[in-house]
């Protein structure tokens, strides 16, 4: 009797853990999506900047003001941002993979627990 209750308690905590993991994975996916969109946008901007003549006027919107910027500087800035976002994406991929592995492990252990509870209950019913 006691062990059944213990098992059920364990199952409950594991399910809680699992739902926490799932929430975290969803959050990470959302962040990843945001970064992918930003990366695409930055790449488009870089393509535009690459097409310009050297004497073209480039402005950057800072708050409500447009500030004139050096083309080379703007180019370097965008490149830097693309590097940063790519690195961030790679890091996120790592964490997501990690979390998914953890999730799979949790799923398995929950299945095992459920099976044990099942067999225990079946045994009791017979007795």
């Amino acid at each position: 009797m006691g062990s059944l209750r213990e098992l059920q308690h364990e199952l409950e905590t594991k399910t809680n853990d699992l739902s926490k993991l799932q929430k975290e994975i969803a959050k990470n996916h959302q962040v990843r999506k945001k970064y992918t969109i930003q990366l695409g946008e930055n790449e488009l901007v870089l393509k535009e900047l690459d097409m310009l003549n050297e004497d073209a006027n480039v402005f950057k919107l800072i708050g409500p003001v447009l500030v004139k910027q050096d083309l080379a500087e703007a180019n370097a800035n965008v490149r830097k941002r693309i590097d940063y976002i790519s690195a961030e994406l790679k890091r996120l991929d790592g964490t997501i993979q990690d979390l998914e592995e953890k999730q799979n492990g949790k799923n398995e252990s929950i299945m095992k627990l459920q099976q044990r509870i099942h067999t225990l209950q079946a045994g009791k019913a017979k007795a």
Binding site: N42, L44, V45, L49, L52, V58, K60, L61, A74, R81
Partner: peptide, 13 residues
Amino acid sequence: VLVDVGTGYFIEK
């Protein structure tokens, strides 16, 4: 004209 190419950058064209 000033063209908004995204991420806050504007280019005079």
